[in-house]
């Protein structure tokens, strides 16, 4: 069973990520008093993109490799996480730092594609994407480190600290608040969809991509968003655990849908911030997350 779990993770995430995306779009539409697209629209979008031409303005291997690397890195993350509160065979060989780095690698792939695409707008977008990544990665890392401090282990059980027996303390509540405040940035939604900023940067790093390459990037972004929703559920909602593996998975998915609803609601009711405003916001989040870690080390 432990050896099938990574496969279950990958399948569940690959199959459901577009559905969550559809949910997000639908909810946004409702807030905006629109009908919105059908729930399955993201599947159609991906299929359509897969059938289209791959335009290549760079003609170099980094440009072609980038979407693959973005997709691969997030997929590896998905494969190793303890989805449904069960650590699969890979979870013991991987740890939180690796997950943080792999997510960063995915971001790097986006940047590499943007730089290889040579487009001015893409480069500005890449610059913003990198800055966002630098400023938001610590919050992600500290969420996992919080579990690590409590459990004295950095392996991926640290991503489900309470399911592994740690207590729910002041530090957890504080980190939960910080995570929620960073959620839009993790998800790349308003007010923090700054790197894509379609209105001035025309999707920024993605500008030169089309067809299947774009589909891979889009799918990676959906998977990433789903991962962040899962991490929230896994790290902060321990009471969803019944001990029955399939039921736990379903419960987690249901909770993730709620997280997506929050993302959608917040996204639809906020304008986009500028990157200079956003970094100051992130800096404050980092400080609070550090406070949470400090409290956790002190055993709170």
């Amino acid at each position: 069973m432990r050896f099938i779990m990574p496969l279950i993770n990958v399948l569940a995430f690959l199959l459901l990520a577009p559905l969550f995306e559809g949910l997000l779009r639908r909810l946004t539409a409702r807030v905006q008093s629109r009908q919105g697209p059908p729930l399955v629209q993201p599947y159609y979008d991906l299929l359509k993109l897969l059938g289209k031409e791959n335009l290549n303005s760079a003609g170099t291997w980094p440009f072609r490799l980038a979407p693959l690397l973005a997709f691969a890195s997030i997929l590896v993350v998905v494969a190793v996480i303890p989805f449904g509160f069960r650590a699969g065979a890979l979870a013991g060989r991987m740890d939180g730092i690796l997950v943080v780095y792999l997510l960063t690698l995915g971001g790097v792939a986006v940047l590499m594609g943007a730089l290889a695409g040579r487009n001015t707008f893409g480069l500005i977008g890449a610059s913003r994407e990198m800055v966002t990544m630098i400023m938001i990665e610590p919050v992600l890392a500290m969420t996992i480190i919080l579990g690590a401090v409590k459990l004295k282990t950095l392996t991926l059980v640290a991503a489900m600290p309470f399911a592994s027996g740690a207590g729910y303390g002041v530090s957890t509540v504080l980190m939960l608040a910080v995570y929620l405040l960073a959620l839009q940035a993790f998800a790349g939604r308003q007010p923090f969809d700054i790197a894509e900023a379609e209105i001035e940067l025309l999707e920024g790093p993605m500008i030169e991509y089309s067809g299947p390459n774009l589909a891979l990037f889009k799918l990676s972004a959906m998977l990433k968003r789903m991962f962040y929703a899962w991490l929230f559920v896994s790290a902060f909602l321990p009471f969803l655990r019944t001990g029955i593996y399939p039921l736990d998975m379903l419960l987690q998915l249901a909770a993730m849908a709620v997280v997506f609803a929050v993302i959608g609601l917040v996204g639809a009711t906020n304008p986009r911030l500028r990157i200079d405003q956003a970094v100051r916001y992130y800096a404050v989040l980092i400080v609070w997350a550090l406070v949470a870690i400090g409290l956790a080390v002190k055993g709170w």
Partner: peptide, 16 residues
């Protein structure tokens, strides 16, 4: 203007 600052909900409602 809402759209230009990435706030499409203002866009949709103003037009509604």
């Amino acid at each position: 203007a809402g759209h230009l600052i990435g706030f499409d909900t203002v866009f949709m409602h103003a037009w509604r």
